[in-house]
Structure formats: structure tokens, C-alpha cells
Design a protein around this nucleic acid. Sequence first.
DNA 1: ATTCTTGTGTCAATTCATTGACATTATTTT
DNA 2: AAAATAATGTCAATGAATTGACACAAGAAT
Lengths: 214, 214
Amino acid sequence: MEEKEISQAVIGRLPRYFRYLGDLKDEGVERISSQELSELMKVTASQIRQDFNNFGGFGQQGYGYNVEFLYKEIGKILGLDKTHHLIIIGAGNLGQALGNYMNFEKRGFLLKGMFDKSTELQGKEIRGIPVQPMENIESFVRENNIDIAVLTIPKTSAVEVAEVLANNGIKAIWNFAHVDLNVPEGIQVENVHLSDSLMKLSYNLERYTKEQNK
Amino acid sequence: MEEKEISQAVIGRLPRYFRYLGDLKDEGVERISSQELSELMKVTASQIRQDFNNFGGFGQQGYGYNVEFLYKEIGKILGLDKTHHLIIIGAGNLGQALGNYMNFEKRGFLLKGMFDKSTELQGKEIRGIPVQPMENIESFVRENNIDIAVLTIPKTSAVEVAEVLANNGIKAIWNFAHVDLNVPEGIQVENVHLSDSLMKLSYNLERYTKEQNK
DNA sequence: ATTCTTGTGTCAATTCATTGACATTATTTT
DNA sequence: AAAATAATGTCAATGAATTGACACAAGAAT
């Protein structure tokens, strides 16, 4: 059943479905049709049905989709029924911001450790988690069953830290450094290149302004 | 010449080209072929040529591309030759992190104001920019020629703040709130949904783990 | 000056993603 | 209980994005 590879285009849309379904659930909505959902989310109903069907039919003809059931199923697909242990490397502003962001805990992403090379930050606590020196990373990852590392360090050190992590069995890296990591296949990397995102916005701003002046 | 619409798929790749070309420039590399660049960036040479040609031929047959020239041209396309005035709304951890991030200034994105509803934060300065109360947003946007607003506030208030911004002539919103904004057409929105990104990582982690256990 | 090499720009082919259409099945109404 | 309605799952058609192939131009070598 779960044989053929699901395209990343589909995966990229799942969190958004998940968000809308969560809201609907909280509002007490019990069922929804692809048509209604499509109007809400501003995508085609066809795409919604096609997307869900990649995972094998969550709906019922003539009825639609049960909101709570669908919400849970998508959560499972996204691995949100499991807990994940994560560490944050780089306890600067961004690292602290992510560390303080409670919502991740709610989804099963548990912050287990923080690391920074600055001795000023070491010892400081973020939500009860002390910032440790970088030297501790290797043993900490091995001994605490860490599966996700969040990289919020400058690009110069990111590449080598990623290598250390890879050598110590990390399974996934959430990379905020402005550099492409070159890790062995099998280690998942998700990049958040903020400046890329801002440049995209800048392009669209520019283009629209030009278009107006024609 | 600049008539046909460029697809967002292409735009999304430009910042990455820009980054690699900047690095090459700093290393003193003068020219590069699509073939060499493709090996470096791990994309096809065909895609690189196709992408650049959307903007009308930056290269020379038999020679390749001049790194510095290409770097500058892509910068122009992305609007990085202009300066942009931005404000950050929400001076919590994430807002402060973005405010403190100097690199944006280097690219012409100048932080002009910060706002927060918390009276505790008001008056505090981030890189010399004081945090102001939310009531000031409207007049500040109008009087200071602000074109980009960064939203780092909870989703409950994001929607209404976006409306206020739209009514006061903002041109672009960089949205970190976990909600889809519904702004009039013509206002550019770039979403950074961090939790979506983390969920994608979680899915890929999950999927790969399962695949291994087969 | 002529030949050879390199490597772009571009067209065509292919692959991937999205949309549209509809047969089929469950639910609701009469 | 039968007819009518609603809405999925899926197949086919379309559209978009990526890759491959190659003619041709610029530069290097002889």
C-alpha cells in the first residue's frame, strides 16, 4: 500500500491541511467536503482529493471527510504521533527564539539540549535547558537519543558541526544557516533560508511595482 | 523584453544562485560555465541556462558567465540594488532575532521601526530602534515610507494587523504568523511557516526510518 | 588565416503536477 | 422502500517544469 513515493509537492501541502483541519476541529466542525475545504483554503477540490488519496481514501462518498479523523490521520502521516528529541545548536537570538517557542513541544518536539560556543551564554537556561559548550555535542547526541538538531549558527561553522552530528547518528537537521549542508544520504535536511525568503519577497515587490508603472 | 511572467519556481532558485555566485566572487573566481556551476550546486546545467535565459542571456558562448557581472545582475533582478524600509511588528524573541540580524542591512533592508503590544517591551531598543506601541503603526507606516512589514506576532492578532497595514499603504508583508493572511491583491505576502517546515522534516524523517526497517 | 574546442541559447522531448470529468456509492428525503 | 442528492475516488486531459540535444558563436590553438 504505502509503496509509491509521495511527491514533495504533496508533502509540502500537508501541514497546511493539518492547520486548517485543526482550526475546524476546534470550532466544532464534524465533517467537511472537499468542495467546502477548497473554498476555505483557496485551492481546487480536485487537488485536495488527489492529495488525500495518495494515502488511501480518508473520505466517504456522499458524506465527505470526518474532520477529527482526517486531522489525526494527517498528523500520523507527518509523524506527529511520535515524540522527537531535539537539540538547538547556537543559542543566539534565533536559537533562543526557537527554544522558547512552546508550540513545538505540543506537537511532540521536545527540546533536550542547547549548545553554544560563547562562554557568556553557557550556563544560561532556556526554559530550564542549560546552554552547554560545543564539545559536549557528540556525547550528548549519542547518549540522549537525539534525532533532530536545529542549526542556528553562522554558516562558517555549520558545515563542520553538521559533519560531527552526522558522525554521531543524528537523523535530521533543521538548518537555519545560510549554507547548503553536505551530509550523507539518509540524513534528512530541511533548510530555512530566511534571507532567500526575503529576497523572493523583494523580487515580487519590485516586479509588481514595475508592472503598475507601465 | 521583460514581458512574459517568470515562474515562481525560477524566482525561488535565484537567491541560491546569488549566494553561490557571491561566494565565488569572494574567492576571486572570474568566470564559470553552467557545467561547473551545476556540479557545485548539484542541479542540471540545462536548468541553470534555462533559468538565466528567462532574463535574457547573461553568458557568452565559448566563455561561460562572468561571475561578478552575473552576481550583480541577479542582485538587480531581486531588487537588491534598491533600499527597502521595514518595520517589525512583534518584538518577542523572534522579532528581536530578526531585528538583530545585521545581514539584512547589508542587502539594503533597513529596519526603521519596531512595535509591540506589551508595555514591558515598549521603550526597549534593538540596535538603536525603540519598540513602540501598536497604536503608532498606522501613522508610522504612512509617514516613513515603509514598504515591508515583518509580522512576528501570534496568529490571533496577525490577521487584523495585516488589514491595518494594507489600509495604510504597505506593499509587502513577511509573515511569520501561522495563519494565511487575506490581503488585497497587489500586496505581496511571503510566508515563513516554521512549524510547517518542521513537520515536513518530521515526515521525511519518519518515511526514511520506515523504509530502512523493510 | 584556419581549424578546433568550448559552452551558450534555444528547441524539442520528457517527466511531473494540476485540473476536469464522471461513474459509483453512501446518505438523505419523500 | 425507492428516488434524489451529495460527494468521493479515480481516470483522462491539460498545463507546467525539467531535462536532453544540438546548432552556432566566441575564443584558443595551430
